[in-house]
Amino acid sequence: MENIVAISAALGAVVGLILALTGAGGAILAVPLLLFVLHLSVAAAAPIALLAVGLSAAVGALLGLRAGIVRYRAALLMAVSGTVFSPIGLWFAHRLPNGPLTLLFAAVLAFVAWRMFTQAAANQPQQPAATPPAAAGLAAQPCQLDNRSGRFVWTASCTRALALSGVGAGFLSGLLGVGGGFVIVPALKRATNAPLHTIVATSLAVITLVSASGVVSTAMAGRMNWQVGVPFAAGAMLAMLGGRLVASRLSGARLQQGFAVVAGLIAIGMLAKVAMAA
């Protein structure tokens, strides 16, 4: 038992450190690590990953609330939508064979790796930035911030856009044990004119609430492996807090590209594992 606790804590520390250094995305490596090292199925690893993701996101969400940059009404709407569909994802996760579920996770991981690599490359100052077409971009966004209050002006199209993004994040969090930030952040960028720091903080609040619903659902069903989950989450939290101390000294774009390469290789490894088991 001591061996499992130590290994779980070490794996969690790897996830927490990557999360701190890259700023996002590191948590999606939780499930593959549990698959390869502890030989858990995707369905068994997903709630453990959710536990670590939720606790890590809660730290960032609380900091955002203190700074007043979380749009909590939007976060609550998205979280409620996600909470409804998270148990549906969990239901599918425990009924789908491990092979197809692993293939699906590998596809999602490959997509996240590709997008993070291209975004990191685009953020490097290689050429002068073009003038953004502000008027056209704002007109297409259903959720607009009120200049005086700093809050969203609620319309039917805004409510629909936020609710649908919450549905996607909630379903994937239950199905694959991912926080859903790779769904929420792009959705908020498309649907709102909020600044990036507000989008990230609001996304963390949604991830915290949706992950909590998945963890509670799994615990109530008696499917949470606490022996692995508790040390894994504790290791992730401690490593994330420690990693933040050195993250500012390192190149964010290069770190994200490095993470993207590692994630892509892990996705290939998951595909190979399924092929060998077939």
Rank of each mutant, 00 (worst) to 15 (best):
A74Y: 03
A75P: 01
L76Y: 00
L76T: 09
L76P: 01
M78L: 03
A79F: 07
V80Q: 07
S81L: 02
S81H: 02
T83Q: 11
V84T: 09
V84C: 08
V84G: 07
F85N: 04
F85E: 04
F85M: 15
F85A: 07
S86R: 05
S86A: 15
S86E: 15
P87Q: 08
I88G: 07
G89D: 09
L90T: 15
W91L: 10
F92Y: 14
F92E: 13
F92C: 15
A93C: 05
A93F: 08
A93R: 02
A93H: 05
A93K: 00
H94Q: 13
H94E: 14
H94P: 01
H94T: 13
R95E: 08
L96D: 04
L96E: 03
P97G: 13
P97V: 10
P97Y: 11
N98I: 03
N98G: 05
G99A: 13
P100W: 03
P100Q: 02
L101F: 04
T102F: 06
L103W: 12
F105Q: 01
A106M: 01
A107P: 01
A107N: 03
A107K: 02
V108D: 03
V108E: 03
L109N: 00
L109F: 08
A110W: 01
A110Y: 02
F111G: 07
V112M: 00
A113M: 04
A113K: 02
A113D: 02
W114N: 08
W114P: 02
W114D: 01
W114H: 11
R115N: 14
R115T: 14
R115M: 14
R115V: 12
M116I: 06
F117R: 13
T118R: 11
Q119W: 04
Q119D: 12
A121C: 08
A122T: 10
Q124P: 00
Q124D: 08
P125A: 09
Q126M: 13
Q127H: 12
P128R: 13
A129Q: 14
A130V: 08
A130W: 04
A130S: 11
A130Q: 11
A130E: 08
A130T: 08
T131C: 05
P132R: 02
P132S: 10
P132T: 04
P133A: 13
P133N: 14
P133Q: 12
A134E: 05
A135W: 03
A135C: 01
A136Q: 13
G137D: 10
A140I: 12
A140F: 11
Q141V: 06
C143N: 09
C143W: 11
C143G: 15
C143R: 08
C143V: 15
L145N: 09
L145K: 11
L145Q: 09
